[in-house]
C-alpha cells in the first residue's frame, strides 16, 4: 500500500487506536491486581450520562466540556459506589452494578428526552466510537509528517490520547513504588507511610481520565476490553510487575494494530467490500490474545494450586 493512501486514511486511526489501547491498559494492570478490574466497566458506562449532561449544560458538542462531564460522571460514580458499599454494607460488585446501571439508564433517558438528534451524539457512537472516521485529510503521503501545515490538520483526538498516555505514564512512573507495594500488600504499604486510600482514589481517577480520553475516540467497548484483556494476558506471562506492564503494553499495541488491520482489510480478503467495526475487532483480537495466554502462558496457573483444581 502506498503512502499517499495509507497516511491520510489509516495512519491516524491506527495511531489513535494504539495510543488509546496503551493508555487504558497501563492503569488496567493495577486495577486487575487489586481485583478492581470491573471499575473500568463501570466508568465506561457512566461516561454516557456525563457527556449528555455536559451537552445539556453547555449546548455545544465540543471536546473539552464533554471530557469534563465524562470525568465528573466517573468521579460521581466512584463516590456513589463507595457510598452505597459503606452505607448499605453491600459487597462491591453489587454496589457497582446498582450505580452504573442506574446512571447509564439516566443517561439514555436524558438522551432520548433532549433534542440531540441535530448533533452527532448518540448511543451507538458512545458504544463503538468512530475510530475509522478519524482520518487526516490534509496528508498527501509520508512527506506530510514533516509538513507543518498538514500537521495542523491532524485529528484533535490524536493529541488528546497522546497527552492522556503521557499523563498516565507519568502518574505510574512517579508513584511506581507506592503503587507496587500497596497493590500487593496494602497493610504493609500503610506502615511504610503510603496513603493507601488516597492512592487508591488517585488510581481510579487516573483510570477515569484514561477512559474518557480513549472513549472519545474509540468508544466504550474498546475501553473496557483494553482495561482488562491486555493486563490479564500479561498477568499469565510473568510473575514480575515490571514485566507484566511491559507485556501489557505490547499486547495492547498488538491488539490495536491487528484489530485495525483485520477490520479494515479482513473483509476484503473474504471478498466483501465494506470494513467492519474496528473497535469491535480490536476487542476481539485482544480476547484472542488473552485466550492464547490462558492456554499457553508460562504463569497461567495459581502458584501452589493443585494441577486440576
Amino acid at each position: 500500500m502506498s503512502g499517499t493512501e495509507f497516511v491520510p486514511l489509516s495512519l491516524t486511526p491506527l495511531l489513535i487506536g494504539v495510543l488509546s489501547a496503551m493508555t487504558c491498559a497501563l492503569p488496567g494492570n493495577f486495577l486487575l491486581l487489586r481485583r478492581q478490574a470491573l471499575i473500568g466497566d463501570a466508568i465506561s458506562h457512566v461516561v454516557l450520562p456525563g457527556i449528555v449532561a455536559a451537552f445539556l449544560v453547555t449546548g455545544v458538542v465540543t471536546a473539552l466540556p464533554m471530557m469534563f462531564g465524562a470525568a465528573g460522571a466517573a468521579v460521581v460514580a466512584v463516590v456513589l459506589i463507595e457510598a452505597v458499599r459503606r452505607l448499605g454494607r453491600i459487597e462491591p460488585g453489587a454496589a457497582m452494578g446498582v450505580v452504573f446501571t442506574a446512571m447509564f439508564a439516566a443517561g439514555v433517558l436524558l438522551l432520548e428526552q433532549s433534542d440531540t438528534s441535530a448533533v452527532h451524539l448518540d448511543v451507538d457512537h458512545a458504544l463503538y466510537g468512530n475510530l475509522e472516521s478519524l482520518i487526516w485529510l490534509d496528508a498527501t503521503g509520508w512527506g506530510s509528517l514533516l509538513d507543518l501545515e498538514a500537521l495542523a490538520g491532524l485529528p484533535p483526538e490524536l493529541g488528546r490520547v497522546a497527552v492522556a498516555l503521557v499523563a498516565v505514564a507519568l502518574f505510574v512512573w512517579v508513584f511506581w513504588r507506592a503503587l507496587k507495594i500497596s497493590t500487593f500488600d496494602e497493610a504493609f504499604a500503610a506502615t511504610m507511610g503510603v496513603r493507601v486510600n488516597l492512592l487508591g482514589v488517585a488510581l481510579v481517577i487516573v483510570a477515569a481520565v484514561a477512559a474518557v480520553a480513549a472513549f472519545d475516540a474509540v468508544g466504550s467497548i474498546l475501553v473496557i476490553a483494553m482495561f482488562i484483556c491486555p493486563p490479564a494476558a500479561a498477568r499469565l506471562m510473568t510473575n514480575r510487575l515490571e514485566h507484566q506492564v511491559a507485556w501489557s503494553m505490547v499486547f495492547a499495541a498488538l491488539s490495536a494494530t491487528l484489530g485495525y488491520v483485520f477490520a479494515g482489510y479482513g473483509p476484503l480478503w473474504f471478498g466483501a467490500q465494506d470494513a467492519v467495526s474496528a473497535a469491535g475487532m480490536i476487542a476481539a483480537v485482544s480476547g484472542a490474545i488473552l485466550g492464547l495466554a490462558a492456554l499457553f502462558g508460562p504463569h497461567r496457573k495459581r502458584s501452589g494450586a493443585p494441577v486440576d483444581a
Binding site: 474498546l222 476490553a225 484483556c229 477490520a263 467495526s277 469491535g280 475487532m281 476487542a283 476481539a284 480476547g287
Partner: peptide
C-alpha cells in the same frame, strides 16, 4: 468486552 466487541463486528 470481547463478546460485545465480536457482537459489534
Amino acid at each position: 468486552s470481547v463478546f460485545f466487541g465480536i457482537g459489534i463486528v
